[in-house]
């Protein structure tokens, strides 16, 4: 009886700590949404509040009145996110299969080839020179999609998962006359859905949140990624006004600098956060990490 009480007390303390953490995690989100929905004058007099002191949707109206840049950035971001994620899962999902086969002849070579990219990288400038001077991929979609498609870390995670599948199943399929590619697509990949979904989701989030690529390689505004556009809004008030000026301001209206910023942040970050629950069930299962040893 006493033991049970003690156990329950432990659980209550645990829940209390977690609830405190939840607050620390939720407050910034609430604050961003609240500021985006507050009247600009009220913001200047009252500061940022957790609950809007004067409610206003002006900032959102402003964004959607003239949204050419927003729509362009959305389109660009969605295209490169979806295409590169699909390609990454396909290429890495297939590539990890031979690496997981113990009797693949070139296993050692491939593993070393992959591993080395994790140990040593040429750095920012050499990649920049390759892409700009030789491939001439600046100001194109390619630069968002192809570089970084394959990563050693992801490959290792996927391969470790493939290795844990029962080998008899693959042998049986082979006796039935299935080719390697068929085994990979029909047996191994479907059975590894958790890991592929987790890796795919993380890759997708990484791409969606990409701003460095635009900063280094893109000068055409219609090819700016969403996050890069957002960065410029945060750092250059002038850029923000220029965006909003395209949709004419009503005379006498105050330009909602502060709320506009945060409304943009909500519009840009929202989608990814909404996608996560669909992938969550795969997460704990998919992210088991193992050694790199062949």
């Amino acid at each position: 009886m006493r033991k049970k009480m003690k156990k329950n007390r432990g659980q209550i303390i645990l829940h209390a700590i977690f609830l405190l953490m939840v607050l620390v995690y939720i407050i910034p989100f609430v604050l961003v949404i609240s500021v985006s929905l507050t009247d600009e004058n009220a913001l200047i007099t009252d500061g940022y509040r957790l609950i809007p002191s004067v409610f206003s949707t002006n900032a959102y109206k402003m964004i959607f009145r003239d949204s050419t840049q927003l729509i362009n950035s959305y389109r660009t971001t969605i295209i490169f996110t979806v295409v590169s994620t699909a390609l990454a899962v396909l290429v890495m999902g297939v590539m990890a299969y031979p690496m997981s086969r113990p009797n693949y002849r070139h296993n050692r070579f491939v593993s070393l080839f992959v591993l080395f990219t994790m140990l040593f990288s040429a750095g920012m400038v050499p990649s920049y020179l390759l892409i700009v001077k030789y491939l001439h991929w600046d100001d194109t979609m390619w630069v968002y999609i192809v570089p970084g498609l394959v990563s050693a870390y992801n490959l290792i995670v996927i391969r470790t998962n493939y290795k844990n599948l029962p080998n008899e199943m693959i042998e049986a399929a082979k006796i039935d006359g299935a080719g390697e590619l068929r085994i990979c697509f029909r047996i191994v990949m479907p059975l590894s859905k958790p890991v592929l979904a987790s890796i795919g989701f993380l890759f997708l989030v990484g791409k969606w949140n990409n701003w460095q690529t635009s900063m280094l390689y893109i000068r055409k505004p219609e090819l700016y990624s969403l996050q890069y556009m957002l960065q410029r809004i945060l750092q250059e008030v002038q850029y923000m006004k220029q965006l909003a000026d395209m949709g004419q301001l009503e005379s006498g209206a105050v330009f909602p600098t502060e709320s506009f910023r945060y409304a943009m942040a909500v519009v840009a970050a929202g989608p990814v956060l909404c996608v996560f629950p669909f992938f969550q069930k795969y997460f704990a299962k998919g992210m088991t990490l193992g050694g790199v040893k062949g």
Partner: peptide, 19 residues
């Protein structure tokens, strides 16, 4: 709890800077 604490990881460095 797990969902809540994982969320910030899905925000870009830009949004983190905003926050």
């Amino acid at each position: 709890y797990n969902t809540v604490v994982i969320l910030p990881k899905f925000l870009s460095a830009v949004i983190i800077a905003f926050i």
